[in-house]
Design a protein around this nucleic acid. Structure first.
Lengths: 190, 190, 190, 190
DNA sequence: TATGAATGAGAGTTCATTCAT
DNA sequence: CATGAATGAACTCTCATTCAT
């Protein structure tokens, strides 16, 4: 019962993500979203009170996905003995292959400038990623797979910042050599 | 004649920058811009064919300013003997005073996703900054003020990427400790 | 069977009356009415073909109630020896306690302007009240409790007209002194 | 300059009055009003911020007209020696001939039930009419043309109330015998 | 019969742009 | 050249009504 409702909501969010991606939050119209979701406006508004609520829901969902993706990735890294090496290598390979850059994050970040609610979501999302990463660093140290001179929280922050810059570069130059950045990431983990 | 026209254009661009900053490209209306520029819509449309053309002109101008700011900054650095130290210190101090970067760049980057013309401007802008920086690194090496192990172009790219990530972080967490990042920048210049 | 159906209908009419009172015919939505009646839209539409039909049914019912209230009131007056005095006194006291009239009548009267069917209901309702009143006057005269110089029908018409004006005044100035009007009503019955 | 703007506003108000009359405030659409005023929506919204603002402006204007009409009428009555007779006679003749009943007043009164701003306008309008009438009564007494036993304010109130009831009756029964009410009005002025 | 999700025409309003003056 | 009134397509959102279950 709730599941049907959830399905519908997801249907709308997917359609919205599609169009937001193509045209941006502002140029994408509710009519676009409705027709892409194959629903009438009236139906869409049964599930979301406004266009902004759709954007916000998408926003939150994007961050949740990002976080769980990172968690999953870090879980896999736990079995690695040469933690730093594998982490950087796999991360950058993932970046260069799966094109994980999601333009919606940029769209969202821009909204953040004008909508304080979005700012909070964004900040929480970021801090959560940092925290996941810092924990992974700690654990790796405990396992003896990461240099004890690394300060987990600080390094996590650096890591995320650099990653963010890299991802933005990637959005502009999709053919760039991502792997070239591995020495820099490594320096963070020394 | 052209000079008066240029003045008018600049008047419009300044007003537009003001409002775009406050409300974003999409929420800022032409009426806002007109009244802020103290011109009538008819006049504004004499100087720019469309709202988009204003955005584009502003876009280009922003990059030009950034580039010449960077040039000026790097010129000053030429007299520095401890080049890397001074460069990083002054750059981060500048950042923490939030002078050289502004939210419009994020707004613009987002537009890039939906308007290919903007993508070109953005890419050119980036490459120009990288090039300026790479040249500065080369010169510093020639003067003996920078380690010869630094590869100018690669390091410039790293530098810009990291800077970009940092700026984005800063937009979310204005109170963050920018200076903490100086070791990381230094590593790029070692 | 019919009785259950009648109960359902009444449930809807009561809920509708509630919301029409609060928000007016046009601002009250079917959703409001449905949820207030604790029925689904589908059910409500089983009993009434349209929102307008609900309004009309309510309209008719309001007039029926008014008429039977008046009848009941006049019945009680039959035992009065000083008919005119008691009639006016009790009527105005009733008015000042705001029982027998409600704002829905105004709402309804306005609908009259745009829906001829409503005009008929309204006219019939009015004439019925007048007729009740005229009969009561006649009977009172027969009992010797009302001056024979009173022309029942004409006076009834005057009575209703004045009452109508008074009620409208009351809707605007709820604190007005209703009793002050009793001399005027008395003049009609002299 | 302001005059052109005033003309446009009036054009809109006239068109709105037309459609409000035909269909009521709620059923009349902005598109109706625009096309009737031969203006585009954008233009109409240059002069009025919202549909509600149009209604309110119309409301105020209606009351102003009513008041000045009454003033003009009472001015003419000042030359009358048999004040009460002439007042009632002319008033009722006016009522029966000029069909001065304006359905918009009913529409407005209904809105009053749901919009406090309108309530204030309505109350002020009413009190102004009463006050005009009371003054006229006083003056007539001073001229010796009206019985001194009349209490101007109270009688004005009665007068307006009765008139209101009469006008409402008239709206329902346009063919009714208005003149039949003159004795009742006379009683108020005795 | 009852439900409540789905519909979709149409509401009020906005705003980039045009053009008569 | 400048003005600002005028435009009208397009926007977000609503709600009376329908219909599959």
């Amino acid at each position: 019962m709730s599941s049907i409702s959830e399905t519908r909501k997801q249907q709308i969010l997917d359609a919205a993500a599609d169009f937001f991606l193509k045209s941006g939050f502002h140029k994408a119209t509710m009519a676009d979203i409705c027709s892409s979701a194959k629903m009438s406006p009236g139906s869409v508004y049964r599930y979301f009170k406004s266009k902004e609520e759709i954007i916000e829901a998408l926003y939150i969902q994007k961050w949740e996905t990002s976080r769980s993706d990172l968690k999953f990735f870090l879980k896999k890294m736990e079995s690695s003995v040469i933690f730093a090496d594998d982490l950087v290598k796999n991360l950058l390979m993932g970046l260069s292959m799966k094109k994980p850059f999601d333009p919606l994050f940029m769209e969202m970040r821009t909204e953040t400038l004008h909508n304080p609610r979005f700012g909070d979501i964004e900040r929480n999302g970021f801090l959560a990623l940092e925290s996941e990463l810092a924990q992974a660093f700690s654990k790796a140290q405990q396992r003896g797979n990461l240099s004890l001179s690394v300060e987990p929280e600080k390094s996590a922050k650096f890591f995320i910042t650099l990653l963010q810059g890299l991802v933005m570069n990637l959005s502009l130059f999709p053919e760039m050599d991502v792997m070239a950045y591995s020495p820099l990431f490594h320096k963070i983990l020394e």
